[in-house]
């Protein structure tokens, strides 16, 4: 059984495998499929609770993953400041694994596809992909 403790490495290898055998488009296709078909819990939370839903989703997942981050939520905006992405940390520590060069990009596509559907803008800034630092900013679009 691929354990949760091994998943990030397996995920990374899946991106690399697809890219090498079927091109970058196949990796993007996977990411779209995960966003559309697997992240139903996030979609429900955002559609029903908006920014509170995002806060609920990411508090749960980032806590379980052991991320170092801060989160701010206001009525019309939501920010995650990621100081140490746990996924990037795993890939850095496991030197026998070659990180997929566009690994961080999956967070842009996966969540953007959902959040932008509900009247929000979504921006992710990769501050240091090597060290796993980024900033995710969501804003309610004006009427």
């Amino acid at each position: 059984m691929v354990s949760c403790t091994e998943f990030i490495m397996a995920y990374n290898e899946l991106f690399s495998y697809l890219d090498e055998h079927h091109g970058e488009k196949s990796v993007v296709k996977l990411w779209c499929a995960i966003s559309d078909n697997f992240l139903q819990n996030l979609r429900e939370l955002v559609s029903q609770k908006g920014i509170e839903g995002m806060k609920e989703y990411w508090t749960h997942t980032l806590t379980e993953e052991g991320a170092k981050y801060s989160m701010t939520a206001a009525e019309d905006s939501f920010t995650i400041e990621m100081y140490e992405c746990p996924s990037v940390g795993i890939l850095r520590r496991n030197r026998h694994i070659r990180r997929y060069p566009k690994y961080c990009q999956h967070c842009d596509l996966l969540y953007r596809r959902i959040i932008e559907d509900y009247g929000f803008s979504y921006e992710i800034k990769f501050l240091d992909q090597e060290m796993g630092r980024c900033r995710l900013t969501v804003r309610k679009k004006g009427d």
Binding site: V2, C4, F7, Y11, I34, F38, T61, E64
Partner: peptide
């Protein structure tokens, strides 16, 4: 984060 099992299965 046990939801990773679902993601792996999906992959």
């Amino acid at each position: 984060h046990k939801d990773f099992h679902g993601a792996f299965s999906y992959g």
